[in-house]
Design a protein around this nucleic acid. Structure first.
Lengths: 347, 347
DNA sequence: CGCGCCTTTGTCTGCGCTTTCATTCGAGTG
DNA sequence: CACTCGAATGAAAGCGCAGACAAAGGCGCG
């Protein structure tokens, strides 16, 4: 006959106390506790202090799920990205998380492995989890998933791209335009036999835009690529793809990103080709390692950190102000390093 | 006088329907809907099909927060890690997420920037968010945070370390022991003037264990490090630190991880030192890029992917089976590449 | 034809919190 | 001194779902 006195019973474990326990201990109602928790000004100093003391003594922790249910807000952001194993995505997400956290939001993360079907599935999960805002990569997704997103009213930002015609807000840069200064630089330094080693093109508007942008700019110079190949995003796979590509005898290889370029660099070295003397190699991203390679890699700098940070800030601002997410256009910058140098005038 | 008929009113927007709407439309009770949703066998084929049709027609999405509140389970895991900008953590988290997702769990992620205070704060947030299990890195955290974790009853796995005496379950490897084969290899190939370039030691048991393990193994060979330095985890900072360290004239530099080693490689190149002829350089992690450097980097392979995967599997298994998390010891492997080669017998 | 049993279904409570609305109390005002 | 107004507080109604429990229906059996 062990009877539990409801008033004196301590919560079974730390963090197991509820608002009711706190209210009882502080001698107030749960409404007042809630007000203290949410920083409402309609609480007297005395009540506030009593509640705060009770919270401390009971090691009370608010239950976010209950709060979400009651407020219909989760203070949570989601990010669905192709992978974390590419440093440029990791950097963007890292900044996104940091900024979201500073602004009081937690982050759900999900990795699609570049699979559009999987991505749609994950987006749906994010909606079910009740995220307040969602970070996606690029604009390449099916109409049905898009429809769900739009009609669900979920705030959404698509990063790593900037397209006026995009159906959702873009916070990123123009992938095609980013390639122009790079092509100009190669052509100006005498490269004529340009090969392109693109990333996976299917379901990846960024990779296609980079390829298209490169081809278009070459055309502006009256040139066409001497070869175009596609590769998965890993150094090893890119190295293999580059080996074949180099047999065409290009004097420049424009790679879809730095990871691919790193693979191409390795392939050139293995083939006994001099970089940049025999062949120039360029990437896109400007990873930290790219500057420290031998030779250092010419690339196009992507503002991944700023992109992540601003996406989080914009999403949260849009949520707070109850307005649609605005697009933000960021710039890229050509970073010329030794992997593409050549003495002027040489052919 | 626009009156809304409660029965015919469609949900305002896609995904806005609740179980009640579905139940009404299917002509059953919410309990039956709930049963269908959770795959209960106590539902007739007919009911199930009606409910499934209604779900489709209404584009109904379950509300996870409500479910969490009712079940006291969130089907969510959390991960608090130092950073995502190191590829080895990104790889581990990537695998952790993948495995968690396969097993029906979403992932909260938070980055502590190697700050123990911040880490404690983030762990607390994870508890509030109601994660079912938590992935942490290493064992170096204060007693108060530890107490909160233990008494909150949250399942927790500390990765990237394996220590019999650890207060929480470890799913990882012995950082000190991992260094022994590397030191043996260096000494066996004639290196005697070994310098150590460690990562940040404060609040980082992994970095300390690697340093201690290296020093201890050197001592076993009757040697002591000719210099020891500490650096932040970035290629650039490591390059700077290595520049100073190389002035001591070591014939080997054992680095705390591959990122640091990449910096050291760059420093050696800048200093005109030959690797491995003048100085051997080694890392820990075995990043994809490490094998493709020139020279390829000798390193200790960390099973980051397996670690992430098994941590997720073990956490979820422990939750399902309502038992404590078990520790799992993983192995590391010395990977000898050219950055440490030397013809046998040479000094 | 009536009984009990098993399968299927519905009703209803509660998870922990926010928030509306009503109430109380005290101070200020005519 | 009665009255109004504002500040502070509490009572209570959900938020959407799961699950305990009760009830209803169908079946075979005697």
């Amino acid at each position: 006959m062990t009877e539990i006195k409801p008033d004196s019973s301590e919560p079974p474990r730390l963090g197991g106390a509820t608002q009711i326990d706190v209210a009882r201990r502080a001698g107030v109602s749960t409404a007042t506790v809630s007000r203290v928790l949410n920083g409402s000004p309609l609480v007297s100093r005395a009540s506030r202090e009593k509640v705060e003391a009770a919270i401390r003594e009971l090691a009370y922790m608010p239950h976010e799920a209950a709060r979400s249910l009651a407020t219909r807000r989760s203070r949570t952001l989601g990010a669905v990205i192709p992978t974390l194993t590419n440093a440029i995505f990791a950097a963007g997400v890292n900044a996104f998380e940091d900024e979201a956290r500073r602004r009081g939001h937690a982050l759900f993360i999900a990795v699609s492995n570049y699979d559009p079907v999987q991505e749609g599935f994950l987006i749906r999960q994010m909606v079910e989890r009740g995220v307040d805002g969602l970070l996606l990569v690029g604009n390449d997704r099916g109409a049905e998933g898009l429809e769900m997103l739009v009609s669900s009213g979920l705030r959404c930002a698509c990063a790593w791209a900037y397209d006026e015609a995009a159906p959702l807000a873009n916070i990123g840069f123009d992938n095609a335009a980013a390639m122009a200064p790079l092509v100009d630089h190669l052509v100006a330094s005498g490269r004529r036999r340009v090969a392109i080693l693109a990333g996976v093109l299917a379901g990846n508007d960024r990779a296609r835009a980079r390829l298209d942008g490169t081809v278009a700019r070459l055309a502006d110079h009256g040139l066409a690529p001497v070869a175009v190949a596609e590769t998965l995003y890993s150094i090893r796979r890119a190295k293999e793809a580059a080996r074949a590509l180099l047999e065409v005898g290009p004097d420049a290889v424009v790679c879809g990103n730095d990871v691919i370029a790193l693979g191409a660099l390795a392939a050139a070295r293995a083939a006994g080709l001099g970089v940049p003397d025999d062949v120039a190699i360029t990437g896109v991203d400007d990873l930290p390692i790219s500057a420290e390679m031998d030779p250092p890699l010419t690339t196009v700098r992507i503002p991944a950190e700023e992109m992540g940070r601003r996406a989080a800030a914009e999403l949260i601002a849009a949520i707070k102000e109850d307005r649609p997410v605005s697009s933000i256009r960021l710039g890229t910058r050509l970073v010329v390093r030794r992997s593409s140098w050549r003495k002027p005038g040489a052919s």
